[in-house]
Amino acid sequence: MQSSRWFDLRFLIGILFTVYGIVLAVYGAVSDPRTPSLHWNIDLWWGLVSLVFGLLFLIVSIARRPNDEA
């Protein structure tokens, strides 16, 4: 059942982290923010990490067996 996907917590977490990953990475790539004590683009890299994490959860959720109910 399609709607049951929304009851799957893995799916919800996947969405949240994918969105956060995109927002952070895009912001990091566009504005290249720095702090005085950190000389690399943490927003871009941590955004990409979050994006991968989110996509992993989405993949696991979508690929789960149909009888494996959340």
Partner: peptide, 11 residues
């Protein structure tokens, strides 16, 4: 405050 720029600060 020392390490986080805008963006990470929000997170």
């Amino acid at each position: 405050a020392k390490y986080y720029p805008p963006g990470m600060l929000g997170l």
